[in-house]
């Protein structure tokens, strides 16, 4: 795992960029918008997987940094005229700073305590977005202008999709690099056993804090991406429900693997769309069916879709 990128790891981002640039020629606005939604889910889920799947820490605060990213890029662009790419970098630095503080405060916590502390942090952040009217516009939300990309202004679904595809490719590449880095290995060691990791000379606190900061930076980028393809954001985007949805994506797809995370975010992202268009007169049962699918997929595949696929192929290999 350690070392330079494999062939497929370099090819995937390149493929995504090419596909992302070409797809808008063939797809309609509906498909492109849906594509944008799914791309943001993938970036958010990749980020959440860094702290949960790679470092094994149960953190709910992702959604808060998603909100910080969205509001920071939106405010920088609307009020101060900062172009999106520069605004996004500033937003990432800002949220990394906040994430560092949260990590320092919560690094002693393990297991469910960290989960609960971050639930509280996310809920408090959402409350702040609702209450701090002078900055966020409060519950009235913020109307967004088309994003200023320095060289051009992104006005259409097609150009929004292209921008998002490029960002996705970058974030995916960074994710591969992280996994293969020293830090990535240290994170995996902590996930497997904190005790063994610290004995073998890994600074557990520092590694956990870094995992948290990087994971939060991904969420912040996801928030920035939300601003690119939407004309309106309000605090309702950052409630507990999307936080649960993200967690679901990770678990349904399979934590700790890029393929699993991508599969999970695409499946759970598209599921409401499928349910909505297939359930017809039974649409009132949608919430129930969604819950049922969730429980069934967890009980049948606790390691996720990818975990199941991997187990199948491994057992086949060992059988022959």
């Amino acid at each position: 795992m350690y070392g330079t990128l494999s062939k497929s790891e370099t090819l995937w981002p390149v493929f995504i960029v090419i596909a992302g640039l070409l797809l808008p020629f063939f797809a309609n606005n509906y498909q492109l918008y849906l594509g944008c939604v799914l791309i943001v889910y993938v970036v958010l889920a990749l980020g959440l997987d860094i702290i949960m799947g790679r470092a094994g820490q149960f953190a709910f605060s992702h959604i808060a940094f998603y909100g910080i990213g969205a509001y920071a890029t939106a405010i920088l662009q609307q009020r101060f005229g900062v172009p999106f790419p520069i605004g996004l970098v500033i937003a990432v630095l800002l949220s990394a700073g906040i994430a560092w503080l949260v990590a320092m405060a919560s690094v002693r916590l393990r297991h469910i305590y960290l989960g609960l502390a971050t639930v509280a942090f996310a809920s408090a952040a959402q409350w702040l977005a609702q209450t701090w009217k002078g900055v966020t516009g409060g519950v009235d939300g913020m109307r967004l202008q088309p994003s200023d990309m320095i060289f051009f202004t992104s006005r259409t679904d097609a150009s929004n999709f292209r921008i998002l595809a490029v960002i996705l490719a970058i974030m995916l590449l960074l994710n591969f690099l992280l996994i293969r880095s020293r830090l990535g290995r240290a994170m995996a060691a902590i996930r497997d056993s904190e005790h063994v990791a610290s004995v073998s000379g890994i600074d557990v606190r520092r590694t956990k804090a870094w995992a948290f900061v990087i994971s939060s930076a991904y969420a912040c980028v996801g928030g920035g991406m939300l601003v690119v393809f939407n004309s309106f954001i309000d605090p309702m985007n950052f409630t507990f429900a999307p936080a649960v949805l993200l967690l679901t994506m990770l678990v349904v797809g399979g934590m700790g693997s890029v393929a699993g995370v991508v599969i999970g975010s695409l499946t759970m992202g598209i599921l409401p769309e499928i349910l909505r268009s297939t359930m017809g007169d039974f649409i009132v049962w949608q919430e129930f069916v969604y819950g049922l699918i969730l429980v069934l997929s967890i009980t049948l595949m606790p390691q996720g879709i990818w975990g199941l696929v991997r187990n199948r192929t491994e057992s086949k290999r060992s059988a022959t």
């Binding site: 989960g115 967690l247 679901t248 129930f288 819950g291 049922l292 969730l294 429980v295 967890i298 009980t299």
Partner: peptide
Amino acid sequence: VIATFGLSLM
């Protein structure tokens, strides 16, 4: 935890 989220939706 995810399963309990599923139960709550059901």
